[in-house]
């Protein structure tokens, strides 16, 4: 004999992920570390931007970068060549990083050995928005070559971001226009910082580093 019972749960499906993410955020705050989650589509320039950031920061800070990609260690290798310590997570078919994946990598290191942490999320403007990785700040990178409607088409990821980076602005006027993207990013919400950059030329890099709250001596 069996009986049927309805159990009220009222718990988020993301509960386990979010608990780990909160723990990561708490540890980073307690240890006075910075942790940023860099999101954006494939080819937006996230890796080159992180290479430029690493070049600027590594003379003064110890940087740890967790790269998320479906396959290869190309991104981690590129950023490591600029002086940061990097680790590549290959997600297989996974379209986003999660707090669990970040925690596993943090467990392998001594957090005290580093000052600033970055996660370069899997190239995707949809799925990473839903998964908290425990960062203190989410940054979304789009490039002006992705089309003038890229922000309008993917507003949700920007709703959770503190900074929108409009990259490849060195191509402004060469058949591409950053104006529409800057305007659209401004319409998403007033408290999001919008910064035009060119990872290729380092345009806007100092503004971005300042917006991250990182001081350079």
């Amino acid at each position: 004999m069996t009986q049927e019972k309805k159990i009220t749960v009222k718990k988020q499906a993301y509960l386990v992920n979010d608990e780990i993410a909160d723990k990561i955020r708490h540890i980073m705050k307690e240890k006075d570390k910075l942790f940023f989650n860099i999101m954006g589509s494939i080819g937006a320039g996230k890796t080159l931007l992180l290479e430029r950031i690493a070049e600027k920061l590594t003379p003064h800070y110890k940087i740890f970068v967790i790269n998320g990609d479906v396959a290869t260690t190309i991104d981690a290798d590129r950023i490591a060549a600029k002086g940061a310590t990097t680790v590549q997570i290959n997600t297989g078919g996974g379209c986003h990083l999660s707090a669990n994946l970040i925690q596993k990598e943090l467990d392998k290191i001594n957090i005290d050995d580093y000052d600033i942490f970055f996660a370069e999320n899997v190239g995707n403007l949809i799925c990473p928005a839903a998964w908290d990785v425990g960062a203190q700040m989410n940054i979304v990178v789009v490039s002006i070559t992705e089309g003038e409607y890229v922000i309008k088409k993917h507003p949700i990821i920007f709703k959770g971001a503190a900074i929108a980076v409009i990259n490849k602005c060195d191509l402004d006027g060469l058949g591409f226009d950053s104006g529409n993207l800057v305007e659209d990013a401004g319409k998403i919400k007033s408290d999001m910082r919008v910064i035009c950059t060119s990872a290729k030329t380092s345009l806007g890099l100092e503004s971005l580093i300042e917006a991250l709250g990182i001081q350079l001596p």
Partner: peptide, 16 residues
């Protein structure tokens, strides 16, 4: 204000 996917209820069969 996105309310994330939430498990509301679970109906179980329990042996008596």
């Amino acid at each position: 204000n996105i309310r994330h996917l939430t498990i509301e209820t679970v109906d179980l069969e329990i042996p008596e």
